[in-house]
C-alpha cells in the first residue's frame, strides 16, 4: 500500500439540534492521488474537506494529515501547508494580485526577492500575463480571478491542494481549460489533490478516484472506470446515468444520426 497523505477515521460532525452533517466517514487518501468528492447540496462534501485543515472540527472521529492527527497540530501552521481554493474564492480585495498570491509565503517569512520570483513563476504556471501582478482582484475577469486563487493556493508549495467547487461560476470552455490546467499542475508538481464538486462528469474526467457522499455518509468509493462498469452499485449507477446518456447522445450526433429518444 502506498503511503497515506490524508486519512478520515470514523469522522462525524453533528450540529446542535441533532443534524448530522457527517456520519462516520472513513477513507484513506494516498500521496499523489487526485480525488473528487461528489455529492448533492447538503451531502457534507464541503464539511469533510474543511476538516482536513481544521476550518471545521469534527465532533467525533479523527482526521490524519501526513502521519499525524490534525487535532494535534497548530491550525494556522497546518493551514500554511495546505493549498485551499475556496468556493467563493475569497481573494483579499484590499491587496494586489501579487500580495494575494504571496499571502502564505509572507506568513512563512519568505524574503521579498523569493516572493517576487514566486509570483512571476506562478503567473506563468496558471497562464496569466505578468502585468496583472500589480492590479486589484476587482480589475480581473472571472476566469482570471480563478487562476489567481489557484496561484495563491500553490504559492507556498504545499504538498496538498484542497479545492471547493473551484470553477463553479465559469462558462464551460473556461472551466474545461482550467480543469485541465489543474490536472496538469497536479501531475507536474506531484500534489495530492482533493476536489469537491457536484458535477459527476467533471469528477469522471479529471479524478483518479471518486468518493460519493450522501446525507453525510460515504456511499461509494472507486475509480472512474469502476464507476462506469455496468455492475456498479445502484447509487452510483443513478449518478452515472446522466453523463453516460449525454455522452452517448453526443456520440450519436457526431456519427450523423438525428436526434433520437434514448430509453
Amino acid at each position: 500500500m502506498t503511503s497515506e497523505m490524508i486519512g478520515f477515521r470514523d469522522v462525524s460532525l453533528a450540529y446542535p439540534g441533532g443534524v448530522r452533517a457527517l456520519d462516520g466517514v472513513s477513507a484513506s487518501i494516498e500521496k499523489g492521488a487526485f480525488v473528487a468528492l461528489v455529492g448533492g447540496s447538503g451531502s457534507g462534501k464541503t464539511s469533510l474537506l474543511k476538516t482536513i485543515n481544521r476550518l471545521i472540527e469534527p465532533t467525533s472521529g479523527e482526521v490524519v494529515f501526513d502521519g499525524a492527527p490534525v487535532a494535534a497540530q497548530d491550525a494556522p501552521v497546518l493551514r500554511r501547508r495546505v493549498g485551499y481554493v475556496f468556493q467563493g474564492l475569497g481573494l483579499f480585495p484590499h491587496m494586489s494580485v501579487a500580495e494575494n498570491i504571496c499571502v502564505t509565503p509572507d506568513l512563512l517569512d519568505w524574503s521579498k526577492v523569493d516572493m517576487a520570483a514566486r509570483v512571476s513563476e506562478l503567473l506563468t504556471l496558471v497562464d496569466l500575463p505578468q502585468e496583472v501582478a500589480s492590479r486589484a482582484p476587482s480589475a480581473l475577469s472571472g476566469g482570471q480571478r480563478q487562476r489567481v486563487a489557484l496561484a495563491r493556493a500553490l504559492a507556498a508549495r504545499p504538498p496538498v491542494m484542497l479545492m471547493d467547487e473551484p470553477f463553479g461560476a465559469l462558462d464551460p470552455v473556461t472551466r474545461d481549460g482550467l480543469m485541465r490546467a489543474c490536472r496538469a499542475l497536479h501531475d507536474a508538481l506531484g500534489l495530492t489533490t482533493i476536489m469537491v464538486t457536484h458535477d459527476m462528469q467533471e469528477a469522471l474526467l479529471s479524478a483518479d478516484r471518486i468518493l460519493v457522499l450522501a446525507h453525510g455518509r460515504l456511499v461509494a468509493d472507486g475509480t472512474p472506470a469502476e464507476f462506469l462498469r455496468d455492475d456498479a452499485a445502484p447509487e452510483v449507477a443513478a449518478l452515472i446515468d446522466v453523463p453516460r446518456r449525454q455522452s452517448a447522445r453526443i456520440q450519436d450526433l457526431m456519427r450523423g444520426q438525428g436526434p433520437v429518444a434514448h430509453g
Partner: peptide, 13 residues
C-alpha cells in the same frame, strides 16, 4: 465579507 475572513483563516493567518 465572511468568505474573505474564512479565506484568511484558510491561508494560515
Amino acid at each position: 465579507d465572511a468568505d474573505v475572513v474564512e479565506a484568511a483563516r484558510g491561508v494560515g493567518m
